[in-house]
């Protein structure tokens, strides 16, 4: 039994504590917005926030988030920055297949939460762990710049 704060609400999960947070979210808690892409922190599709940090939930054991604040794509719009990022994503029509975009939005939000005016190099570095096979990177970059401007 693992207790944590998920999207602002206390939850307990009965899954084995060695279960990656990704699978606890998807299979035990029914939150499928966080995606399975690689299972080894290579693609970033599973990115969530743990105590305000972007982490890859596919390699984060459930036990390690006991007592932590976990925020997923489903609730990132409760945060002003997350809301601005999602709005910019829609304005720029970033998504193609969209499968990686939960992770992209979570990584971009984490970036802008700690750095409201990132340079292009900082954007590239912060987003380096998020693969988009459809190749939406140009619009991702534009949407991050736009979200940054909208938060100024």
């Amino acid at each position: 039994m693992t207790a944590l704060t998920l999207n602002g609400k206390p939850v307990t999960v009965t899954a084995d504590p060695t279960t990656p947070l990704l699978w606890a979210l998807r299979d035990d808690l029914g939150l499928t917005g966080t995606k399975f892409g690689c299972g080894m922190a290579q693609c970033g599709a599973c990115t969530v926030h743990v105590n305000g940090q972007a982490v890859r939930s596919c390699v984060t054991p459930l036990a390690s988030v006991a007592g932590a604040r976990v925020v997923t794509i489903e609730a990132i719009d409760q945060d002003r920055v997350g809301r601005a990022v999602e709005a910019a994503w829609v304005r720029h029509d970033v998504a193609q297949c969209g499968y990686c975009q939960s992770g992209q939005v979570m990584s971009a939000t984490a970036l802008l939460q700690r750095n409201r005016k990132p340079t292009d190099a900082q954007i590239d570095a912060a987003m380096a762990g998020n693969i988009c096979r459809c190749g939406t990177y140009q619009r991702v970059r534009a949407a991050i710049r736009d979200a940054s401007a909208s938060l100024a």
């Binding site: 917005g33 794509i73 999602e86 297949c97």
Partner: peptide, 8 residues
């Protein structure tokens, strides 16, 4: 589905 693909 642009919004649905941006908010999970």
């Amino acid at each position: 589905p642009s919004a649905a693909k941006s908010n999970g």
